[in-house]
């Protein structure tokens, strides 16, 4: 397969995954914004949404205030924000269009119609129900792309490269969402374990479709360390870091087997995966969750660079 084709497939699915994450972040922010907070303990869910989407700096450049309307517009539709949902779908489609031949008709149509339908949702309706409709549609679009790829694509390198994009992006997003909750969301005056805290954690879990899963796994009330355990170490949780790495190593190994040789990306992914499998929540908290997540995000980026070196250029 052409290196450029592999690169396009990889980024195509990264962008779709990113669009979905941004939609989930927006959803979480709008739920949090709906809850009254105590006087004087001002938090800004919309600011934290920007942080979780890794868009704080670029938003600051616009000079706008982080109001619900501004942030929603910026994360959903802005042409200036390279990670806006609009631009994610646009880039996904541009990448898909460049490798039209490596995709099945179903997958191409899923991506193409996401882009075409996007124009129906415009910024003039930022009412909560308008926002919810839009978010639901983004998730559906992403599911359609994912599902059509899963159901129709041949299991060979084209599929594997597209899956690598999904899991690399997802690991990054999960780590960021967790990190933001821990360091940005909770105002200093609010006690850990308080009502607001509970509500925020449950919203985080919802944003990764894991609230029900949490109760199934732990049969316990929401505890920050258990949530971290779920989103970092539990392989059965599909958006956890461990699950992402189980998949990344699996698809990289498929590639290595098929091509008859392995390289740095396989070794790096396996190393990270082993670390996640051997890690314990206690240790992570002891050494600092923020530090752990920051390091993880760096290592995850490094895996992206290694994959690029080995296959994509």
């Amino acid at each position: 397969m052409l290196s450029r084709t592999a690169d396009n497939l990889f980024w195509m699915s990264r962008y779709v995954e990113r669009a979905e994450s941004i939609a989930r972040i927006l959803h979480a922010a709008s739920r949090m914004a709906a809850v009254p907070i105590a006087e004087g303990s001002e938090t800004n869910e919309w600011q934290s949404a920007l942080a979780a989407a890794n868009c704080e700096h670029i938003f600051a450049e616009t000079g706008l205030e982080a109001t619900d309307e501004n942030v929603f517009e910026f994360l959903a539709f802005s042409e200036k924000n390279p990670s806006s949902i609009r631009n994610c779908f646009k880039m996904a489609r541009t990448n898909a269009r460049a490798v039209r031949t490596a995709l099945t008709t179903d997958t191409w149509e899923a991506i193409n119609s996401a882009w075409l339908e996007l124009h129906r949702y415009r910024t003039d309706d930022v009412s909560p129900s308008g926002l919810n409709r839009f978010i639901a549609w983004v998730k559906e679009s992403s599911l359609r792309v994912d599902g059509s790829a899963y159901r129709t694509m041949l299991r060979h390198d084209a599929y594997w490269f597209s899956r690598l994009g999904v899991y690399l992006e997802r690991a990054d997003n999960t780590a960021r969402i967790l990190d933001v909750k821990y360091h940005v969301l909770l105002p200093a005056t609010e006690p850990v374990g308080g009502g607001l805290d509970f509500f925020q954690w449950s919203t985080i879990l919802r944003s990764v479709s894991a609230l029900t899963a949490y109760h199934w796994v732990y049969r316990d009330s929401l505890k920050p360390w258990l949530i971290a355990d779920l989103l970092i170490l539990r392989e059965e949780m599909p958006r956890s870091l461990a699950s992402c790495y189980a998949n990344l190593t699996m698809f990289l190994d498929e590639l290595a087997r098929d091509y008859g040789r392995q390289g740095e990306s396989q070794r790096h992914a396996r190393r990270l995966y082993a670390q996640l499998r051997n890690a314990r929540t206690d240790d992570i908290f002891q050494n600092g969750l923020h530090e752990f997540l920051t390091e993880f995000i760096g290592e995850n980026n490094r895996l992206g660079a290694l994959i690029a070196d080995q296959y994509l250029i």
């Binding site: 397969m1 052409l2 290196s3 450029r4 592999a6 390198d157 490269f161 590639l255 091509y259 296959y311 994509l312 250029i313």
Partner: peptide, 14 residues
Amino acid sequence: DLVVQDSLVYMRTT
């Protein structure tokens, strides 16, 4: 995607 080496044309693949 194409590159010339030793009087032959190659494509860069994975």
